[in-house]
């Protein structure tokens, strides 16, 4: 139960966006298999702080796999070796005594490094800002049960809505595309009747926003689906592409989009 492990970590350290950065080696001598990966980093950081060195900066918050704050590339894989698991939910029992572990930030043009393992993911917010919502005023909602939603549609919408916006899909994609992130939001909103009035406009503005933020395009590598901590599938990307095609040929929406901007 309490056997302790010794690990060697190669951690990406970068003082700021303009610093070139590089790997620094740390020993993690007394690691319990019951620790989470982030608790292992906490232990390393406590040691660094006591020695007066700056601890390794990394994003994290809820530590229960739902807020989407955490995420590092562990031995080349975003969120590490387990499927459908965020970094905070990965535990050290999945590593061996003596392992060398490489830890890097998400790498994508749209996610500039802020410091060490912390990157700026605000580009994802800007994609949502471009139409990832239903335009409803506070107070003007109809009675909730006035619009029935077929249960299968509600279930699939929920599958898509489970996205936590961590950005692992972008980090895993050879094109650094945010297609899975975007497709999950569109899938969620377009499977529900509430999302349909703005559908064509939404898919066009959000896809444009993704391009403008410097994300690449999807070329079907499917790496995103393999690392998604919520197991969101690429079928939503196919759905998004279809919606985009339909929206692109519907000229009336061009008029609407023009009037809106």
């Amino acid at each position: 139960m309490t056997r302790s492990m010794r690990l060697v970590l190669d951690v990406w350290r970068q003082k700021g966006p303009k610093d070139p950065g590089g790997f620094v080696r740390y020993e993690a001598p007394d690691i319990s298999p019951d620790m989470s990966f982030l608790e292992m980093l906490d232990v390393v950081n406590e040691g660094l702080t006591e020695r007066g060195e700056e601890p390794i900066a990394f994003d994290h918050d809820c530590r229960e796999g739902i807020c989407g704050s955490c995420g590092v590339v562990i031995d080349g894989r975003p969120h590490g070796p387990l499927t459908a698991t965020t970094t905070c939910q990965l535990h050290m029992r999945h590593f061996q005594d003596g392992d060398h572990v490489t830890i890097e930030p998400w790498r994508a043009r749209a996610f500039p490094v802020i410091k060490d393992l912390v990157v700026d993911r605000s580009a994802l917010d800007r994609i949502i800002r471009a139409g990832g919502y239903i335009s409803i005023r506070t107070g003007s909602a109809p009675e909730a049960n006035d619009v029935p939603v077929p249960k299968p549609d509600a279930e699939v919408a929920m599958d898509a809505a489970a996205c936590i916006g961590c950005g692992a899909c972008v980090a895993a994609c050879p094109n650094a595309s945010a297609s899975l992130f975007l497709a999950a939001k569109l899938g969620h909103l377009h499977l529900l009747p509430q999302g349909l009035p703005e559908k064509d406009d939404r898919v066009r503005t959000m896809v444009s926003a993704m391009d403008a933020q410097g994300f690449g395009h999807c070329t079907n590598h499917r790496e995103c689906e393999a690392v998604c901590p919520k197991g969101i599938g690429v079928a939503f990307i196919a759905r998004m592409n279809r919606d985009f095609l339909i929206a692109s040929v519907a000229s009336r929406h061009e008029v609407m989009a023009h009037r809106r901007r």
Binding site: Y133, I134, I136, T138, G139, S140, A141, P142, E143, A144, N145, V147, P148, V149, P150, K151, A154, A157, M158, A161, H188, L189, L192, Q194, G195
Partner: peptide, 21 residues
């Protein structure tokens, strides 16, 4: 009112087979 508001926003609440909440 909160439930009405959230449903209109597209919050995917659990539903019965008849499509209601």
């Amino acid at each position: 009112n909160i439930i009405d508001q959230c449903v209109a926003q597209g919050v995917p609440f659990a539903r019965e087979y008849g499509g209601l909440l």
